[in-house]
Design a protein around this nucleic acid. Sequence first.
DNA 1: CTGAAAGCGCTAACAT
DNA 2: ATGTTAGCGCTTTCAG
Lengths: 356, 356
Amino acid sequence: MGVSLRDIAERAGVSLATVSNVVNGYRPVGERTRQRVQQAVDELGYSPNLSARHLRRGRTGLIALAIPELNNPYFAELAEIAIREAAGLGYTLVMENTAADREAELLLLDGSRRHIIDGLIFSPVRIGREEVLARTADSPLVLIGEGVHDVPHDHIAIDNVAASQAAIQHLVEIGRRRIAFIGAADGGDRQSAHLRLRGYREALAAAGLPYRPRLVAGTPEFGRRDGRTAMRDLLALGEPPDAVFGYNDLVAVGALRALTEAGHRVPEDVAVIGIDDIEEGLFSTPTLTTIAPDKEAIGRLAVRRLVARIEGAEVTDALTVQTPFRLIRRESTCGRRGGNSGAVAPPFRYRPPDGS
Amino acid sequence: MGVSLRDIAERAGVSLATVSNVVNGYRPVGERTRQRVQQAVDELGYSPNLSARHLRRGRTGLIALAIPELNNPYFAELAEIAIREAAGLGYTLVMENTAADREAELLLLDGSRRHIIDGLIFSPVRIGREEVLARTADSPLVLIGEGVHDVPHDHIAIDNVAASQAAIQHLVEIGRRRIAFIGAADGGDRQSAHLRLRGYREALAAAGLPYRPRLVAGTPEFGRRDGRTAMRDLLALGEPPDAVFGYNDLVAVGALRALTEAGHRVPEDVAVIGIDDIEEGLFSTPTLTTIAPDKEAIGRLAVRRLVARIEGAEVTDALTVQTPFRLIRRESTCGRRGGNSGAVAPPFRYRPPDGS
DNA sequence: CTGAAAGCGCTAACAT
DNA sequence: ATGTTAGCGCTTTCAG
C-alpha cells in the first residue's frame, strides 16, 4: 500500500491527529509543526486513502448522474458541465445510463449502487411519482427533466409546455398552418413527450389552427432514426405538413434527413424545429432552428443543490427551479443561407434560477 | 447508517464471518445456516458497504476512462460501451475529461485521484512516452489510441496509418487527384494526427500523386468548427481540392458545412471522408463516408484487459492489440442519394484482436 | 463447517 | 496547540 498518515506522523514526530489537521485544515496547527509535517508529506508523497476517509465519514465522495441516453449529445453536453461542477466541489461524478429502461431506473432508485453514492441526479422517463415516493434510500435526490413532479425532492427543468408553445408560435409566425409534431410517446410513459404535445396543442389553439391527430407521430424512442421514420410516414400522408416540430433536435435531424431524401426543400416546403440546441444543429444542412435550454444552468444547479443537501442543508424545502430557454432561429425555418451562427432571438421567457 | 454485517449476524444468530461467506461465497456454508442468513439479509435489506470492503481489500472498485473530448460522439459511444462492460464485471467506471489539456493528463497519471481508482484507461494526446514512463502510480494502465507507443502497458488502437491509407485509396479509386487533409496537429503534439498525415502522404505516393503541403490544413482542435474553418481556408486557395480527408468525422462534418455554404457540390466537386463512424454521419447531407473503427472491440477489450490486470494477471507481458476497421461508403464520396444505410465494404484490413 | 479477533487508514470526541 | 483513542464495516487469518 501507499504512504499512510501514520508514516507521516512517525517521520515528523507528531501524532496522527496533527497530521490529519495539517492535511485537511480541520483545526489550527502551529507553524513549526505544520512545516515539519508538510515536509514529511512532500518527501514521502502522501495522499489520503479515500476508502478509509469515506468509511469513517459515512460518505463516498461520489455522486451519480443518471440519464436515459448517453448517446444523445444533449446529455453528453450536460454531463460534461456536471462533471466539471462536481469536480470543483470535491466530488467525483459517475454516469449511469438507464437507456430509458424501467428496470434500470428502479434499480437506480433503490438498488445496491445506492450505497456507493452520496447522492443522485436523475432524469427519469419510465417511472412516475409513485415509484419515487416509494424510494427507501435516504441519500439526496435531485430530479431533472419533466419525468416526475410533485415529489419532495429538488427539481430542475425547463417548462416544456412553454418551450413547445414558443416553437409552434415561431412556426405560425413564419406562416405555417399544417404543423406536425414528431415524438409523441408511443408507449405513453415519457412525461416530457406529453407536455411537449400539450404545448403543441395549446399553441395551435391559440393560433386558431385545428388540431389534426394525423399530424402527430408517435415514436418508440427519440433518436435520429425515429425522426426519420416518422417523417417518412408523415410524407406518405395525402397532404403532407408544411412544418415539423421535433420532440428534440435528434428527432428533428432525422426528419430533416427524411425530407432531403424525399426531395422536399427545407424550409421552403417544410420548416423544421427541434429542442436542445445540440452543436450538430449548427452544422446540419440546413442548420436547425431550435429551442435552447440553458444547459449550463441546469448542470451546475443540479450539482450544487445535490452537494448542498449532501453536506447537510436540510433547511430549505425541496425547491423546483425552471431554467430559462430561448429560441434560436436558423436556416430550417428562416431560409437564410451562409450564416455561420444562428441569429439569437431575445429570450422568449426567462425565469432566473434561484442560486443554489 | 444502513444495515451492516453485524446486524445480520445477530439476527441470524451466527458470526460475522459466516454472514460474509454467505453473501460473497468465499467459503462453503452449511445449507441450514445459509438459509437463516439469507432470510435475515432479505428481511433487513442488507447490501455491503463498499467503502469498508475497499478499505479492507485495498481496492475501490472504480476504474476511470480518460478521454480528450467528451463532446465528441465517438468518445461518447465508446464510453457507453465501456461503462456497460465495466458494470458487467462489477466495476464502476468514472469518466475523466482531460479536454486535451497537458496538465490534466499529467495529473491523471500521477495526481491524487489515482488513489481513488483501481485502474485507468487512458487516451493521451498531449503527453508522450517519457511522461508515461515516469509515472509513479502502480495501478494498471491501459492505453487507447495512438498517443503513446512502446511503453510497458497494454495498448489498444487501430492502425492509424493504415486507416488513412484506406481513406486516401478510396478517394483515389473514385478518381480524385487533389486530395486535401484537414486536421494536421498545429501544435504538433497529437500523435494520431501525425500518423494520419503519414498515412495520407504514403497513400498519395503509392498512387503516384504529388504531396502538396498547401493541401494540408492544421487545426487547433478537432471539432466541427475546426473543420469548417480549415475548409474555408482551403477553398480560398487558387485551385481548391477535389477531395478532403478529415482527421475525424467531426472535422469532416465541419468541412461538409463549409462546402455547402460556399456552394460547392459534394461529392461532385469535392468528395469528403472522415474517420470514426459517428451516427451523425449517417444523417448529414450528404451522408458521410467514413473509416469505422470497431468501437465495441476497443471499449470491451480495454475494460477486460484492465480488470484482468487489477485482479492480478501479471503473467502476460503488456500486449498491443490492433482492432479492425472498415470503410463505409456513403454519399459524400459516392454520390448515391436516398440510401438509408451506407453500403458496407468488406474489411480493408482485419486483425482479429487477442481476446482478453 | 463455523467462530473470534486483528486490523485496513482515517476522523472526531475527548483529554491534556 | 497537540495527543490518545475508539471505532466506521469489512475480509481474512487462525482456531476450533
